[in-house]
Lab assay of single mutants.
Amino acid sequence: NMECRVCGDKASGFHYGVHACEGCKGFFRRTIRMKLEYEKCERSCKIQKKNRNKCQYCRFQKCLALGMSHNAIRF
């Protein structure tokens, strides 16, 4: 039983190089595919399941810091 490295929810698998839940997987995919840019935040918000949708900037930064990558495809 793995935990999502981004928000701590139950991970659904290994997505983009990191154990992640469906919510964070979809969030990362949409951000990359649609080339979304979020308003910069300096607060280093703590991303948890209950508040993961509050600060998209910090959520995406955490995805990147954990090594999530669009190129991380498993063979």
Rank of each mutant, 00 (worst) to 15 (best):
G13W: 02
R74W: 10
Y38S: 01
H19K: 11
Y57V: 03
Q56S: 12
F14M: 11
F60Q: 00
A11E: 06
R30N: 13
R59S: 00
N71A: 11
F60R: 01
C21H: 02
K25M: 15
C41W: 02
I32K: 02
M2H: 06
M34C: 11
I32A: 07
V6Y: 02
Y16G: 12
F28A: 03
C4I: 00
Q61E: 11
C55E: 00
Y38R: 01
I47R: 04
K40S: 07
I73F: 10
F75N: 12
C24H: 09
K46F: 13
Y57C: 06
C55D: 00
F28W: 08
M2N: 07
Y57A: 05
E39R: 07
N53M: 10
I32W: 06
K10E: 12
R29F: 15
C4A: 02
K49H: 15
K50H: 08
C45V: 01
E37T: 09
E22V: 06
K50P: 10
F28K: 02
S69A: 12
H70E: 15
G23T: 08
L64D: 01
V18L: 07
K40N: 07
C55F: 01
K49M: 10
M68Y: 02
E42P: 07
G17H: 02
E37G: 06
A11C: 05
G26T: 13
G13L: 04
C58Q: 01
K62E: 04
F60C: 01
V18C: 09
H19V: 10
C7Q: 03
G8C: 03
A20C: 15
R5N: 14
A20N: 07
K40D: 05
M2K: 07
E42I: 06
Y16T: 06
M68I: 02
K40P: 09
R29A: 15
C4V: 00
G26C: 09
S12R: 05
R43G: 10
F27Q: 00
F60T: 04
F75H: 15
C45H: 07
R30L: 09
K54D: 12
S69E: 13
C7L: 02
K46R: 11
K25S: 14
C4F: 03
I73R: 09
G67N: 05
S12Y: 09
H19F: 15
F75R: 13
I73W: 09
C45D: 00
Q61K: 10
I47S: 06
A11L: 06
K35Y: 04
H15E: 11
L66Y: 05
I73S: 14
K54A: 12
N53V: 08
S44Y: 13
G23C: 14
H19A: 14
N71D: 14
D9I: 06
E37V: 11
G8M: 02
I32P: 01
K10W: 08
F14T: 13
Y57H: 08
G8Y: 05
H19E: 15
D9T: 06
C58H: 12
C7M: 00
S69C: 09
S69P: 04
C4Y: 02
R52H: 06
R5K: 15
E3Q: 11
E3N: 10
I32V: 14
Q61R: 06
C7P: 02
C7I: 01
R43M: 11
R52I: 12
R74D: 14
R59N: 02
A72C: 09
G26Y: 14
M2V: 08
R33E: 15
M2A: 04
M34K: 10
Y57Q: 01
C63Y: 07
S44G: 13
E3T: 09
R59T: 07
G23N: 14
R30S: 10
C4W: 02
C7N: 05
M2L: 06
Q56I: 03
R43A: 10
K62D: 03
N53I: 11
R59C: 04
V18G: 04
F14G: 06
R30P: 00
F28D: 01
C4R: 04
R43S: 11
F75V: 13
C45A: 01
S12Q: 09
M68W: 09
D9W: 03
C55V: 00
K50Y: 06
R43H: 10
E42R: 05
F75C: 15
K50A: 13
S12W: 03
G13F: 01
A11K: 04
Q56M: 10
E42K: 07
T31P: 00
A11D: 07
Y57W: 09
F75E: 14
F75G: 15
H15F: 12
G67T: 02
T31I: 04
F27V: 00
E22M: 08
N53Y: 07
C63L: 04
C58W: 02
E42G: 09
M2E: 07
R52E: 11
C21F: 00
A20P: 01
H19D: 15
R30E: 14
I32F: 08
F75S: 15
G67C: 04
Y57N: 00
A11M: 06
S12I: 09
F27P: 01
G8Q: 07
L66A: 10
K46Y: 11
C24A: 03
G23Q: 12
C21V: 03
K25R: 12
V18F: 04
N51Y: 05
V6T: 00
A20M: 04
I32H: 05
K49T: 13
K25N: 14
F75P: 15
Y38A: 02
F27M: 00
R43N: 15
R5C: 09
G8D: 05
C55A: 01
R29Y: 10
A65K: 10
N71M: 05
V6P: 00
F14L: 14
E37W: 06
C41M: 00
R59V: 04
F27D: 05
R52W: 06
C21G: 03
A20F: 15
A65D: 14
Y16A: 10
N53L: 07
L66W: 03
R29L: 15
K62H: 04
I32L: 10
G8R: 05
H15K: 03
F14C: 10
Y16P: 04
R59G: 01
C21P: 00
F27E: 01
C41T: 06
G23Y: 13
H70R: 13
C41A: 00
E39Y: 04
L66V: 14
L64A: 05
V6Q: 00
E42L: 08
I73V: 15
K40V: 13
V6A: 03
R59W: 15
C55L: 00
N53S: 12
C55Q: 03
E42H: 08
